[in-house]
Design a protein around this nucleic acid. Structure first.
Lengths: 274, 274
DNA sequence: GGGGCGCTGTATCTTATGTTACGTATTTTG
DNA sequence: CAAAATACGTAACATAAGATACAGCGCCCC
């Protein structure tokens, strides 16, 4: 059963030609506002011509454009009147998608519930104070998170390095690490032996370790100055790193805020380099 | 300070003549939908004439009726984009929960609300059917997401390649791409020129593109077979890719499920290689 | 490789929407 | 109570919006 126009679209988007599909995607992207504008504006937003928009609307079963707009307005009216209906979306109908999202949202709430403001602030401060170098590394699946964080931090401050490539390569970088430096490690199970060894050696050299791990705690936790334990369980064959990802983004935001003055200048300098 | 048109109206309704006041009341009664309709419909709903509506709009300070409607649409857009703002009470953050987290959770709900089960299933099927090769690539900040997805997909099926390194390197890989292949691109603003060029060339070769972008849609959308538009706005100096990350994980889970039979064997084979 | 089909954009036309002018009604004030 | 000012609606107008016809192009199938 099809109750909303959005559903109708996704139901038929497969049978549409390229131009109309672009129209559909543009409309869905910020539904339903684009559909309330004029045909000319709609077509400009989608990058197609006006007739394509009209053909798109016709394909959905509407006689003309105003009729289509009225339908959108009616739908919007129903939504605005009963906020409850907003929450029951098409995917909450018990499909396979919703449980994944629900579990992920739960994981995030749980993760942050066990995380105090203070902890986050301390870690952010540690990352923001420019005493030494910052190294980031991750495991098989979590290394992208290290990269993501490094990509941001490297812009607002100097001496940020992502340790990539083969084990032998980053193992040799230990020689550059000392007491004033910070090592951010991402490690969820199955915990990687090589990372544990690396963390231990870094710890022996006095490096401060910030560990992102799962709720069962990687063995690296025993060497870590700060430990962030994220929930990872989802109805999937894989563990989810989404909660850790959000913590990472939160930290990036916090560090950026702390470095605002210095960082702004740095960003201007970077811009001028392009 | 007056932030919404509704406030503006209730502020000036006292100084209005009878007819315009009726217009105002009608509009407030089911705000803002009546204002999005035509002047004729608005006037009929209020039981006054068209010119009265126009005088009412003029009194609010708008030059003409379309300008008034645009303002209403902008307001609606702002509301729809951040559901959090609709919970009028800013101090609802009684638990001092990170506003960053709240925004992120909203983004995810909102992102999935615009995403139907069907769309995700289609994309997952496309990724799971082993016809050709799968390439993944991302922009400056989103490339880690491409890596993350590639790391998982590469385990459950062959011919999955993450395009890394310099532009010239992956540009040359175009020669390997054809109709049977899939290209997954992550691109949020500021959209990268190099990625757009790459996508266009791939599209010309008949490659099917699956695009992860933000709600404003990367220009690559015009070449894409499937578009996933994630919300990115958070109280930070940076945009958030967390919603896209969760969509990626959801797709990984779905593809894995579809390939369960074939994938299980493959994973056993991999285990035995260690 | 050739013929046919389907999709898309340009240009034109038509409709209906917003706008304005003006006359009547209503209220206000001296 | 009368006169003036303001408010409101009817009707004509101009403009911009949606609709259509047609030609070019690419694509697929034979």
């Amino acid at each position: 059963m099809i109750s909303s126009i959005a559903e109708l679209i996704s139901d038929r988007i497969g049978t549409m030609p390229a131009g109309e599909r672009r129209a559909a995607q543009t409309l869905i992207a910020n539904y339903p506002l684009t559909g309330l504008k004029t045909v000319a504006e709609f077509s400009a937003a989608a990058g197609v011509s006006s007739p394509t928009i009209l053909r798109f609307v016709a394909r959905l079963g509407f006689q003309n454009y105003p009729e289509f707009q009225s339908a959108l307005q009616d739908e919007l009216a129903a939504q605005l009147q009963s906020p409850a209906s907003r929450t029951l979306n098409p995917s909450s109908a018990g499909g396979a998608v919703s449980p994944m999202l629900e579990a992920t949202l739960d994981n995030m709430r749980e993760t942050f519930r066990h995380l105090t403001e203070r902890q986050l602030a301390d870690i952010a401060t540690r990352l923001a104070e420019r005493r030494g170098k910052t190294f980031l590394i991750g495991g098989r699946f979590t290394d992208p998170l290290a990269r993501y964080m490094a990509a941001h931090l490297a812009i607002i401050q100097p001496d940020v390095y992502h340790l990539a490539g083969q084990e032998s390569i980053w193992r040799d970088r230990l020689i550059d690490m000392g007491k004033r430096d910070v090592l951010v490690i991402f490690d969820i199970r199955r915990y990687q032996e090589s990372l544990v060894r690396f963390a231990e050696k870094a710890h022996q050299r006095g490096v401060q370790i910030i560990l992102f791990t799962d709720q069962w705690l990687s063995p690296i936790a025993r060497f870590a100055r700060h430990v962030i334990a994220g929930r990872t369980a989802v109805p999937s064959a894989w563990d989810s790193s989404a909660a850790l990802f959000v913590v990472a983004e939160t930290l990036i935001a916090a560090v950026t805020r702390q470095l605002e003055a210095a960082g702004a200048k740095r960003i201007r300098d970077l811009e001028s380099l392009r």
